[in-house]
């Protein structure tokens, strides 16, 4: 464990807490893409298949349970909760995310570290996470104004993978064997997809204006 990875995990946790706060405090999920939440639930379920077979540390196991539990709880809330589901922007959240799932799975069948079920699902989860934010970014552009908590959620979600890139650089120089280029490339793509959001987020913060993404 290094400071970059710890910062990344905590930033990721903060993004989830901000999202839970927004949904719980406002009893609304307006501006949140259910499709992105479903993709993230799939990412964690596919990535943590080793939850009960490979024990890394208490921290690792607890965080995996938190990520799986919170992502499923958010999807449940947005689909089933009587009050919250009424504020879901169904007509704006139209990204065909099934193509992202299919594409990531096909890529994982072709490009993986080892041809085992666990490694193929791991690679699938890495590729899917890289593009999982797309429905959310599209929804933000369509819904025009972005409320503060939603903006902060997306910001922290993007920032966490940037910390992971620093973690991979650190591990590359400190551990001879560390060459996880599947994570490297997907992590760079994932962070790059946030580039324009980060730009408009920073500009809105600098000008102390509401976050507006160009349609």
């Amino acid at each position: 464990m290094n400071i970059f990875r710890l910062a990344g995990d905590l930033t990721h946790l903060i993004s989830i807490l901000v999202l839970l706060l927004k949904i719980y405090a406002t009893k609304s999920c307006s501006g949140i893409s259910l499709k992105t939440q479903e993709l993230y639930a799939l990412v964690f379920l596919a990535r943590y298949l080793d939850l009960f077979t490979d024990f890394v540390s208490v921290y690792n196991t607890v965080m995996k349970l938190v990520f799986i539990g919170s992502s499923l709880a958010i999807v449940w809330c947005m689909r089933m909760h009587r009050i919250v589901k009424r504020s879901y922007n169904r007509e704006l959240d139209t990204f065909r995310h099934y193509f992202l799932v299919a594409g990531s799975f096909v890529l994982a069948l072709v490009v993986h570290e080892k041809f085992t079920l666990q490694e193929i699902f791991w690679a699938f989860s890495i590729y899917l996470e890289a593009v999982a934010i797309l429905p959310q970014l599209v929804l933000l552009q369509r819904s025009g104004n972005v409320d503060n908590l939603t903006g902060q959620y997306v910001f922290f979600l993007g920032a966490y993978r940037a910390f992971y890139i620093l973690n991979w650089i650190y591990r590359y120089f400190t551990e001879q064997r560390f060459g996880r280029w599947i994570s490297w490339i997907s992590g760079l793509v994932q962070t790059a997809l946030y580039a324009d959001f980060f730009y408009y987020y920073f500009m809105s913060w600098k000008n102390n204006a509401k976050l507006q993404l160009p349609a």
Partner: peptide, 10 residues
């Protein structure tokens, strides 16, 4: 299992 196959990151 050897470090190689084990994904120790979240």
């Amino acid at each position: 299992s050897p470090e190689g196959s084990l994904h120790d990151e979240l």
